[in-house]
Simulated scan of single mutants.
Amino acid sequence: MLSIYPAIFYKEKNGYSVIFPDLNYLSTCGENLNDAMEMAIDCLAGYLYTAKLDDDKLPTPSKIDDIHPIDIANTIGFDGKDSFINLISVDLEDYAKTHFNKSVKKTLTIPEWLNREATKKNINFSKVLQEALIAKLRSL
Rank of each mutant, 00 (worst) to 15 (best):
M1D: 13
P6M: 02
I8Q: 05
I8V: 11
F9Q: 09
Y10D: 12
E12C: 08
K13Y: 09
G15R: 03
V18W: 02
V18R: 04
I19N: 01
D22R: 09
L23A: 03
L23M: 08
L26Q: 08
S27Y: 13
C29G: 11
G30H: 07
E31Y: 10
N34A: 12
A36M: 01
A36C: 03
M39L: 02
A40D: 03
A40S: 14
I41E: 11
D42F: 11
D42Q: 09
L44H: 07
L44S: 03
A45K: 09
A45D: 04
A45V: 06
G46F: 11
G46D: 13
Y47H: 14
Y47A: 03
Y49S: 11
T50C: 01
A51E: 11
K52E: 15
K52V: 01
L53F: 06
L53Q: 15
D54Y: 02
D55F: 00
K57P: 00
T60R: 10
I67C: 06
I67K: 04
I67F: 10
P69I: 05
P69F: 12
D71L: 12
A73I: 02
A73P: 07
N74I: 06
N74H: 09
T75M: 13
T75P: 00
I76A: 05
G77F: 11
F78C: 00
D79N: 13
G80I: 02
D82R: 11
D82L: 09
D82Y: 08
S83K: 04
N86A: 15
N86K: 15
N86I: 11
N86M: 15
L87P: 02
L87N: 10
I88C: 04
L92E: 05
E93M: 01
E93K: 11
Y95V: 01
A96D: 08
A96E: 05
T98P: 01
T98D: 12
T98R: 03
H99N: 12
F100E: 12
F100S: 13
N101G: 07
N101S: 07
V104R: 04
V104I: 15
K105T: 15
K106M: 09
L108M: 14
I110H: 10
P111M: 03
E112R: 14
E112H: 15
N115A: 08
T119P: 00
N124P: 07
F125A: 09
S126H: 03
S126Y: 07
K127G: 06
Q130L: 13
A132I: 06
L133T: 10
I134N: 12
A135Q: 15
A135F: 08
L140T: 15
L140D: 12
L140I: 15
L140R: 13
